[in-house]
Amino acid sequence: MNVGIVIFPGSNCDQDLYRAFKKFNPNKVEFLWHKISKLPKGLDVCAIPGGFSFGDYLRTGAIASRSPIIRAIVEFANSGGFVLGICNGFQILCECGLLPGVLIRNQSTRFICKDQELMICNRDPLFTSLYQKNAKVSFPIAHHDGNYLVDPSTHQLLLDNNQIAFKYLKQNPNGSIGDIAGVYSKNHRVLGLMPHPERRVDSKIGGCDGEPLFKNICQGPYY
């Protein structure tokens, strides 16, 4: 697999994401600067890391979603490329329309950073097939705007198409509809999630619950 990690000014989880991919020996991991309007040839996966792209002083992800690289990523996804967006990356994917819904301010109005228990809602061959179905995992969350919102009919569609990737267990930390923590695109090639699996790939730093996700992306199965 050839992986590209997008860097916006204000991205701050790009190095963590790089290390998480690197651990599972993909063919190549490279950084992609936000000003490029053409993705490198042979790219298989495009990952958008967490952070505060362009400061996120407007609606989160709003400015980044209008940058040259995002236009290229939309094309890439539409022609079948894999896209992963974590935290700010998820917000950007919603803003640019690759994923349904929006992420609004947490219900508490506070930024929240903690370990969060999640459920893997279905085993997806591109991303989550190395977990058991309905497996419980713990990933950190760290966001101010993670409250996922879609209208009821879209929510029903997400359920019907198995598009819900992760759900918050125990206490919903941000007020997100249906406890949704991450969603797939309709064709299941684009995944966005608020929690940070890239911070859980080391037994000495909080545990390895994120490893199967990166291993799956780098090594398959893809069916």
Binding site: C13, Q15, F111, I112, C113, A142, R199, K204, I205, G206
Partner: peptide, 12 residues
């Protein structure tokens, strides 16, 4: 919990 204490993935 209002501070990101884990970014950079080195917080033990």
């Amino acid at each position: 919990e209002q501070f990101d204490h884990m970014v950079m993935a080195n917080t033990v």
